[in-house]
């Protein structure tokens, strides 16, 4: 076939391009991983592959509450914020995808506005407000702004997923004798699930990675999350270089995200809705 060499050539080109992109994206991550596995003396030697391997850095960070407590805060705050943002986002997205109501465009516009708002300009007012209200350095003090900034993302992703659901299925379920609740639980929910899980992942990552609010709205380990805590890492003495432990902590905090994605990925089955309608 005349097309065969051309396709093979194209495949090779794409493969090369993919490798370049993956390497480009992964080199910093691997470097951090490599730093976290180096001993104190070889940390600055500039080698990509450690000369001397050690797990000491990991032992160190798990030996102090300096890391464990923020890790606990991070997980708790990100999960709660994700849960609330996704639930609220589902309601809003349902309304946007399904209903015609006055002010729909305005709602979408305002949520876009929030997404575009420079967060840095909110830090000082939020700091003052939260101190007045006693929210400063508490979990709700971080959860609230996270929900605010996660909502536009949640609404956007969810409403684009919801628009894809063939809503005629809801009618079909009603005709088959389902109550509205049964129609939702047995037909709509299974079809909406991939969108909800995808959104949950994105929102979780957004909250998990935040540094700005975490550093400005916390002052103690009561609510400090890992990205903020990392900046307070010191070595055993003031002159000790914390590069190794910071790297180890950085590696550790990417693990929940990877787990989160892997756990939900099985549920994100693409093309689940195909075959519902004519096709």
């Amino acid at each position: 076939m005349a097309m065969q060499p051309a396709t093979a050539g194209r495949k090779a080109r794409w493969a090369l391009l993919d490798i370049v992109v993956v390497v480009y994206a992964l080199v910093p991550v691997l470097w951090i991983a490599s730093l976290s596995l180096k001993t104190k003396d070889t940390v600055a030697d500039g080698n990509f592959v450690p000369r001397e391997w050690t797990l000491q850095n990991y032992r160190d960070i798990f030996a102090t509450t300096e890391f464990i407590r923020p890790l606990f805060n991070s997980i708790g705050i990100a999960l709660i914020a994700t849960f609330i943002a996704v639930v609220l986002g589902m309601m809003a997205a349902y309304a946007i995808a399904r209903l015609d109501f006055p002010g729909k465009k305005l709602l979408v516009g305002v949520s876009l506005l929030i997404a575009m708002f420079p967060q840095i300009s909110l830090v000082t007012p939020l700091f003052n407000i939260e101190r007045e209200l006693g929210l400063f350095d508490t979990w709700p003090g971080l959860i609230l702004p996270y929900i605010t900034f996660a909502l536009p993302l949640a609404i956007y992703t969810l409403s684009s997923f919801f628009r894809e659901i063939p809503w005629e299925l809801e009618k079909a379920a009603k005709m088959d004798g389902a109550t509205p609740a049964q129609a939702f639980r047995r037909v709509i929910a299974p079809l909406a699930a991939p969108g909800v899980f995808t959104t949950a992942i994105l929102v979780f990552i957004l909250c998990w990675n935040d540094f700005l609010f975490a550093i400005s709205l916390t002052s103690t380990e009561a609510s400090r999350t890992v990205p903020a805590a990392l900046s307070f890492f010191t070595g055993t003495s003031q002159f000790d270089d914390p590069t190794g432990t910071i790297s180890a902590a950085a590696v550790v905090i990417t693990i929940p995200i990877i787990l989160f994605v892997l756990f939900f990925q099985r549920r994100i089955v693409a093309g689940l809705t195909s075959g519902a309608v004519k096709g």
């Binding site: 299925l169 009603k174 005709m175 004798g177 037909v187 689940l272 809705t273 075959g275 309608v277």
Partner: peptide, 20 residues
């Protein structure tokens, strides 16, 4: 009456089969 209490079945133009 709600659809479920009318005991009527419907065939849709798009078939509306449950894909899952």
């Amino acid at each position: 009456k709600s659809p479920k209490d009318r005991d009527i079945a419907m065939v849709f133009q798009s078939y509306a089969l449950y894909p899952h």
